[in-house]
């Protein structure tokens, strides 16, 4: 029982990270119908910006104020949001009417660029950086052996708040309505007076900011932030992509549910079967979903549009 509750907490915390990243994949796919391979690098850069910004603000040593993490979180989100905006503008917008494969290859190029450029000595370097202890590693309480750490609580709370805000943006605002219209049919959306390019820009900014939040939270959970191209980032980003596919790529609520579900499966498998095989559970789940419901849990069977 103790293990189960602990595993559920850890699973939801991990799944929240997947969900935050998956949202960016799914939002971009929903509008432009391509997989933004550079998205997991934005997530990684979110962590790196967090370290750098915290260092610049002098919070790398001593005990930073309790609210410091909010400042760093928001700053990293802003930095990655801006980066997402620039990437879309420079790399993807010129290819708007090009075949989708060109855009896909460009996305891989952007991804490789970010990973390798980031390792230059004057940028982030290629030695692991220590993330300042913005969130102290303390347990809020231990009940019958179940440990709820402050970090996990913050991960879950931040994820829930951000996803709530996104849900409100997409389903409760005029901008969100325009995003859904653009995602359904770009040309007709333009006929309604919607500035489609602006909506696409905003989509990249929002998706990148969410990935940055995940990057911050992941950095807050681990001690040392590995260099950009490190396999741990690539793998986490890849799993988040799997979460987006499981939920139904293009579907925002699907990405949230897919993320949390994947985190739970991974942690439950790790706790009760073998912790060596966590990646296997993730891909087994992907294969099962693709076999039983290829369009994803919340995805709709869509006819490819011309």
């Amino acid at each position: 029982m103790t293990t189960l509750v602990q595993t559920l907490i850890d699973g939801v915390a991990l799944g929240s990270l997947y969900a935050l990243i998956a949202l960016g994949y799914t939002m971009v796919y929903g509008i432009l119908r391509f997989i933004n391979f550079a998205h997991s690098d934005i997530f990684m850069l979110g962590a790196w910006f967090s370290c750098t910004i915290a260092g610049l603000l002098g919070w790398a040593v001593g005990t930073p104020p309790t609210w410091a993490f909010i400042v760093v979180l928001l700053a990293a989100m802003a930095a990655c949001g801006l980066l997402g905006f620039i990437i879309e503008r420079l790399a993807y917008r010129p290819l708007r009417s090009a075949p989708r494969i060109n855009v896909l290859i460009t996305a891989i190029g952007v991804s490789l660029f970010l990973e390798n450029f980031g390792q230059l000595p004057k940028i982030f370097g290629n030695t692991p950086t220590k993330m300042p202890a913005l969130i102290p590693d303390i347990a809020l309480g231990s009940f019958a052996g179940v440990r709820l750490s402050l970090v996990n609580l913050i991960v879950i709370v931040v994820a829930v708040v951000l996803m709530g805000a996104l849900e409100w943006l997409i389903y409760g605002t005029k901008l969100g309505r325009a995003m859904r219209a653009v995602s359904y049919d770009t040309k007709t959306a333009a006929l309604m007076g919607i500035d489609v390019d602006r909506v696409i820009s905003i989509t990249f900014v929002v998706g990148s900011a969410l990935a940055a939040a995940a990057g911050f939270l992941q950095a807050a959970k681990i001690v040392a932030v590995q260099q950009p191209a490190h396999v741990s980032w690539v793998q986490l980003g890849l799993k988040a992509f799997v979460a987006a596919v499981i939920g139904g790529i293009g579907n925002v609520r699907g990405a949230m549910i897919g993320g949390v579900l994947l985190g739970l499966v991974e942690m439950l498998g790790g706790a009760y079967l073998s912790s060596e095989l966590r990646v296997v559970y993730v891909f087994t789940m992907l294969i099962l979903v693709l076999l039983l419901k290829p369009e994803g849990l919340l995805g709709k069977t869509t006819v490819e549009k011309v």
């Binding site: 309505r177 325009a178 219209a181 359904y184 959306a189």
Partner: peptide, 12 residues
Amino acid sequence: FANLTVHENLEI
């Protein structure tokens, strides 16, 4: 926009 309600289409 088939994914939007009639009301939302009018708003758009």
